[in-house]
């Protein structure tokens, strides 16, 4: 080589822009975390936009039902007791979706029933995610006998049919409040998250960066929470989001079977149950709460799918 012979050129390399980042705008693109990238993708995903708008409205309704209706969900006026066609009022008025058998506004019950469903869905998911993740992390990270025992316990719970198990649990309570339903569903639901978390932890545990942290002398807590958890979380978030919809429909199912929530608690499941009794004459009582359950479940499943696509670029 004539000129620049035998010169190590690290300094030159540093001046160059890394190949992944477009050279045109190195300053603006300083830090792009993987979460940031996922968010970048999500914002452009129509499924995400539709589902998050839906979920935003559902949460708003659940938090502030008064914004949407002034009618009471429990006060019935038998004047409206009604077995024929709904008398359609103005959209959003008390009677625009008709009245139920006891003369209560279907619309008001729909609005007020949202809270029960959302609380059940969110609370069960939260408990299940925390419990399941902890169990999965312990099982996956420590392995050996701990893993063997925890995995067998998980298997036993996994073997119990979800709804049947929940029915049995709920049977043993006389007073079935929202709290009890949440407990029953969470009691049987954590295994799914445990399995996902365990698998993710086992994969991440073998990654070189975990070995590197160990080689630096990092303690177990640091390794688990700084290195393993952030990298094992993605699949758990996806599964939990999709499961949330499932818990809402499970609540409705149990209520329909008379084992979940019961009147006077207002919930979609309770209304579906009541609606079935009048299915021949006034289908609207059944129709509207069913639509709400379907939309909610769909919204969460769509959100979960969108998040999955954003977090796992391989599926793209």
């Amino acid at each position: 080589m004539p000129d620049v012979t035998k010169t190590a050129a690290p300094a030159d390399e540093a001046v160059d822009t890394p190949s992944v980042v477009a050279a045109a705008a190195p300053q603006q693109e300083k830090a792009r975390s993987l979460w940031g990238d996922a968010w970048h993708d999500l914002r452009r995903n129509p499924y995400f936009i539709v589902s998050s708008v839906l979920i935003f409205f559902l949460l708003l309704i659940a938090a502030l039902p008064g914004l949407f209706t002034s009618a009471s969900p429990t006060a019935g006026d038998l004047v409206h007791h009604y077995v024929g066609k709904p008398e359609l009022g103005k959209i959003g008025s008390e009677g625009w979706l008709g009245y139920d058998i006891q003369g209560r506004s279907v619309y008001a019950r729909l609005i007020h029933g949202t809270r029960a469903s959302i609380i059940v869905g969110v609370a069960v998911t939260a408990i299940v995610t925390v419990v399941g993740s902890i169990m999965g992390m312990i099982s996956g990270y420590f392995g050996g006998v701990i893993d063997a025992v925890l995995s067998r316990i998980t298997d036993i719970f996994f073997g119990i049919p979800f709804l049947l198990g929940a029915m049995v649990v709920l049977q043993s309570f006389t007073d079935r409040t929202i709290l009890v339903v949440v407990f029953a569903l969470a009691f049987l639901g954590w295994t799914q998250i445990t399995r996902v978390m365990r698998g993710a932890v086992i994969t991440v545990k073998q990654a070189d960066y975990v070995q590197a942290a160990k080689a630096l002398g990092a303690g177990t807590t640091r390794i688990l929470f700084r290195h393993i958890l952030p990298n094992a979380m993605a699949p758990v978030i996806v599964v939990a989001t999709i499961a949330l919809g499932g818990y809402i429909s499970a609540e409705a199912t149990l209520s329909y079977l008379g084992l979940g929530l019961a009147s006077p608690t207002v919930s979609w499941g309770v209304d579906i149950s009541a609606g079935v009794q009048a299915i021949r004459t006034s289908q609207h009582i059944l129709l509207y709460p069913s639509i709400m359950v379907s939309i909610t479940v769909l919204a969460f499943i769509m959100l979960g799918e969108a998040v999955r696509n954003a977090l796992d670029p391989k599926l793209r």
């Binding site: 620049v4 035998k6 390399e13 160059d16 822009t17 890394p18 190949s19 992944v20």
Partner: peptide, 12 residues
């Protein structure tokens, strides 16, 4: 002796 190294990075 020291290796000759092509400076810089493969192209983007």
């Amino acid at each position: 002796q020291e290796l000759y190294a092509i400076k810089g990075l493969p192209p983007n």
